[in-house]
Nucleic acid binder design. Structure first.
Length: 574
RNA sequence: CGGGUUGUGGCUCAGCUUGGUAGAGCGCUGCGUUCGGGACGCAGAAGUCGCUGGUUCGAAUCCAGUCAACCCGACCA
């Protein structure tokens, strides 16, 4: 028979004080509420309360995936290294991969993601276009040997992920599946009570043509994004292609190139101050070695940074020059520019600068800058590329209005992969004409444990967590204030039983603790409703109901409370 | 991997500068008084001072090495 959980027997050791090594609200509160414990850096144990919430998140994900045409499977976590060699990712993923070998010295990888394994599973089995599309997903632990695990569940070396892989006959089919997954992911965010924004994203290591990230908006988020309040355009800062408004530098006599001594002006801020112009009127130069080991100087609007993702698209596996290399190529830190670059050093300018005809730039000799430098006359860029990081105040590429900036937690990402993996791993089927074709694939990930962290990050106050009903570990906490009282204690048990009968998940605080301890723990655990039974109220046949989110309290008759609060709970489930 | 910081009962920390054999608060156990927002009294249990080596009559404290964790930067669900 179903019964209620008592606090006295629940394994949820709460902490009165903040743990020393937790800064983020989600990390701190999940530890304090006795939901998680750290086993080692980036490795967490999920205690009963956390596991209940995780299972609810998983149930929501399963429901959305199933209703949008996907099927659940479960693949091994340990995958043979050969599969990774085949796709070429053994080296590309590099030190991020957790590796191990068996007693025969065969190499294995703890899966960080499963494109290879899933493609291997279906190749040879799916042979005809008539069998397509197929979309398979699983929920399991993933392993990434992060450079720096941090923020509790936000970035672990082990985490729970839902990952799905779709196989379509053509690009149109792939796009249809992608749109289905977009809807599923929107549903997951919504039902978990998360305020999320889908943003255009870079495909990164996974690869493919088009990608969207689902960002849970939070100041503590690791990702920066820009969005247009007017038309709805939104993008990860890494991927945003925005319109940057560029200012010309100061005018010179007869519009000619003019060299000016600028002692002490080494930063853009100093340069702008010296000439009393905005930073946007200056030009920033960044020297790097491209993937082939060739020296490149990039020229950017003075008020923008080099975007590392865009730079790696343009220059491959590049890195910034160190001081020795700058000296070796005759470049001067703080005074670099496109005019008079040493022989062999390429010049690449940000696309936004095209059209500006008077540049304030470094002169490539110490303590000097040029005014009025004009592309085409004073120098010729080797190429124009999109290199600058987006920021608020840049203009929306769709409607031209100013963008806003925000921070987010990347809780999910969906990719159109095309034939990247099916081609490298030789996964084909026969089309209606009997011709061999590569699968058009997509892949779709949600960080389940990260979603839990994102919920807490968005839903908490000074006293503790404020769970949305849909993912709360329990829905109602019954607080028996005086367990020794011969009216209160039976009443509390009866109320808890009635909640069970209503189909509501209830936690009964039956501990022999003082009221203050129980109230504080109840707020810390943050279940949506608290039903408090105290001596005075119970004597009148009443109890107190507190809504954790609003803090609102009201008296309700003991006989009615389970039905009344129960129906409120059920209405708020999603 | 670079920069910064920290390792002392379960938790939060003091002690280290100036070596002398380990402390507080919370938590835990027992008894009593309390009982609607983290009570109080009394009595207890609990620590190889991260690890290894060195200096010294003597090291938590000084020196060297090493390991681990955390924070800031380069990766990602």
């Amino acid at each position: 028979m179903k019964t209620f959980q008592t606090m006295s027997s629940l394994y949820a050791p709460t902490l009165k004080e903040d743990p020393a090594d937790a800064d983020l609200a989600s990390h701190r509160l999940l530890l304090r509420a006795g939901m998680i414990r750290k086993t080692a850096a980036g490795l967490y144990s999920y205690l009963p309360l956390a596991w209940r919430s995780l299972e609810k998140i998983e149930a929501i994900i399963r429901d959305e995936m199933d209703t949008h045409g996907a099927q659940e499977v479960l693949l091994p976590i340990i995958t043979p290294a050969e599969l990774w060699e085949e796709s070429g990712r053994l080296d590309a993923y590099g030190p991020e991969l957790m590796r191990l070998s068996d007693r025969h010295d065969r190499d294995f990888v703890l899966g960080p993601t499963h494109e290879e394994t899933m493609t291997d599973l279906v190749r040879g089995e799916l042979r005809s276009y008539k069998q397509l599309p197929v979309n398979l997903y699983q929920i399991q632990q993933k392993y990434r040997d992060e450079l720096r695990p941090r923020f509790g569940l936000m970035r672990g070396r082990e985490f729970i992920m839902k990952d799905a892989y779709s196989f379509d006959a053509d690009v149109e089919g792939m796009k249809r599946t992608f749109d289905e997954m977009y809807d599923a992911y929107s549903g997951v965010c919504d039902r978990c009570g998360i305020k999320a924004l889908p943003v255009a994203a870079d495909s990164g290591q996974i690869g493919g043509s088009s990608s969207i990230e689902f960002m849970a908006l939070a100041e503590a988020g690791e990702a920066s994004l820009v969005f247009c309040p007017d038309c709805g355009y939104a993008a990860d800062e890494e991927a945003a292609t925005v319109l940057i408004s560029v200012e010309d530098g100061p005018e010179t006599h007869n519009d000619e190139l003019e060299c000016v001594d600028t002692p002490g002006a080494h930063t853009i801020a100093e340069l702008a101050a010296l000439f009393s112009v905005s930073e946007a009127a200056c030009r920033k130069a960044v020297a790097l070695m491209d993937g082939e080991g060739r020296p490149v100087v990039c020229i950017l609007p003075g008020d923008h940074e080099l975007n590392e993702v865009k730079a790696s698209h343009a220059f491959g596996d590049y890195r910034l020059m160190d001081d020795d290399e700058l000296a070796q190529y005759g470049l001067h830190k703080g005074c670099m520019g496109p005019v008079g670059l040493p022989e062999g050093v390429a010049c690449v300018c940000d696309i936004s600068l095209k059209g500006s005809l008077s540049w304030l730039v470094g002169a490539n000799k110490p303590e000097c800058h040029f005014l009025g430098a004009r592309p085409g006359r004073d120098f010729e860029p080797d190429s124009w590329e999109d290199l600058a990081s987006a920021k608020a105040s840049d203009a929306c590429p769709v409607c031209g209005k100013p963008l806003d900036a925000a921070r987010g937690i990347e809780m999910g990402q969906i990719f159109q992969l095309g034939d990247k993996y099916s081609r490298s791993m030789g996964a084909t089927f026969l089309d209606a004409q009997g011709k061999e074709q590569y699968f058009q694939m997509g892949c779709y990930g949600i960080g389940v444990t990260r979603t839990l962290a994102a919920v807490v990050e968005q839903c908490h106050d000074d006293a503790g967590i404020v769970w949305p009903v849909s993912v709360a570990p329990f829905e109602v906490e019954v607080v028996a204030l005086d367990t020794a009282d011969d009216l209160v204690w039976p009443a509390a048990q009866r109320v808890a039983d009635q909640f069970v009968a209503e189909g509501v998940q209830v936690l009964l605080d039956d501990r022999k603790e003082r009221p203050g301890v129980k109230f504080n723990d109840a707020d810390l655990l943050g279940l949506p409703y608290q039903v408090v039974l105290g001596k005075k109220a119970v004597a009148k046949g009443m109890c107190e109901v507190k809504d954790r989110a609003t803090g609102e309290r009201r008296e309700v008759a003991i006989d009615d409370v389970a039905a009344e609060v129960g129906s409120a709970v059920i209405a708020r489930r999603r």
